[in-house]
Nucleic acid binder design. Structure first.
Lengths: 218, 218
DNA sequence: GATAGAAGCGAACATTCGTTTGTATACATA
DNA sequence: TATGTATACAAACGAATGTTCGCTTCTATC
């Protein structure tokens, strides 16, 4: 069996992540075969082999001969983990209205946090943050004043994606669609009453792409 | 099968209690046979029989053909139990596309549930449900095809509110703005390409008012 | 008494699922 | 080269588990 050096293989990490995701989305733990399929493993025996290692290393607990008898443990405390369903998303100030975004916004500086179910979010739930939209520059993309927009932190974007862009010279952030055009970048509002912004590529810093919109009335 | 009078037999109550105790002591739900032994029932078919009743009455949710696929629901709200701060919102079929809404939609019949933080929702978090929007009849109110719309269950609405309305004669539900005009009701789409619907007040049943919109890209 | 539905029963069936077995490959080491 | 170990693979085995079926018992109703 594997050496007891505490390091996990890539496959073992993937399995842990799969189990963690699975229990967030289901009221029961995964079976060996569900792990097999979810992690693209060719044989159930390989799953079992690595589950033994995860158990020995203290990452999980297994109930022998019981279907779905897998329990995630907190590696540090060795205690059972609950149902860590919620991802807390920091909500920063309004976009397009000042200086909302530092390079690495810290959750502690958020005005509030939003507890969102991880099932709602894309696979990578880290680097998710939210901004409250100010103004109607994206009204034709169905994003209204006051909406909360969820972003995935990224430094690059594909043409046409909605991004939070930091305009260095102006010292402000803005929500627009991203269109690189050679050395310059067109930031296109979704409001026919407004004109696109053209900026030198050096002056535009993508800080995240839109992954969702939440609007609550009242 | 049993009459749908909402009362549970002694045996069914015992089963519920057993399941509740079981999930507190184990990281996985009980199997049919474990319920059988724990409740001193002679046959697994009796367990299955009563589990069907519990499901129909909204006490549990079952995942067919999945071992230990039993989930306790909160009878009052029809929500999944076990997530302290989260409210699980049942998501039913698409609106404006057939017959999505029965009089009292049952959480156990939801195609999926959404775990939302109670902080996101209005004070009263019971009677919240969600529908996936089909079509673009509310596009000018910034609700797009595919969006998930959150409703608060209500039988009445104020003029101008967005409601899920059940048209008895047509046997269909629709998402529109609500304008009572004497004995008839105008159901106004937010799409200038579409005409309002006029219906006799007797033929319109408000089933809920819109309290939020969620749109996830991916 | 006849009938029908609710509830229970025992057994069998079919699938899911944990486990084992035999083998293969890569790599380190003696 | 030979040997042992870690990892992976495919297949099969057998236990666990969900489901179904035919029958019985009980009770309410006509």
């Amino acid at each position: 069996m594997a050496p007891s050096n505490g390091k996990l293989s890539e496959r073992q990490n993937k399995m842990l992540e799969f189990i963690s995701d699975f229990v967030k989305e289901h009221p029961y733990p995964p079976s060996v075969r569900e792990i097999q399929v979810g992690c693209s493993i060719s044989s159930t025996s390989v799953v079992d082999y690595n589950l033994h290692i995860l158990r020995r290393e203290g990452y999980i607990k297994r109930s022998p001969d019981i279907s779905r008898g897998i329990q995630l443990l907190d590696k540090d405390t060795g205690r059972a983990m609950g149902h860590p369903n919620a991802v807390s998303v920091p909500v920063f100030g309004a976009i397009a209205a000042g200086e909302p975004l530092m390079a690495f916004p810290d959750a502690s500086e958020a005005e509030e946090t939003l507890e969102l179910p991880s099932s709602m979010l894309p696979a990578r739930t880290d680097g998710i943050y939210a901004l409250r939209v100010k103004g109607q520059s994206m009204i034709e993309d169905l994003i209204d004043d006051g909406d909360v927009v969820l972003f995935q932190r990224r430094q690059t974007a594909s043409p046409g994606e909605m991004v939070a862009a930091w305009l260095k010279e102006r010292g402000e952030a803005t929500l627009k669609r991203y269109y690189p055009e050679g050395a310059r970048i067109r930031l296109q509002p979704a409001n026919s009453a407004m004109s696109p912004i053209y900026e030198d590529a050096d002056n535009v810093e993508v800080q995240g792409v839109v992954v969702g919109v939440i609007r609550m009335f009242r």
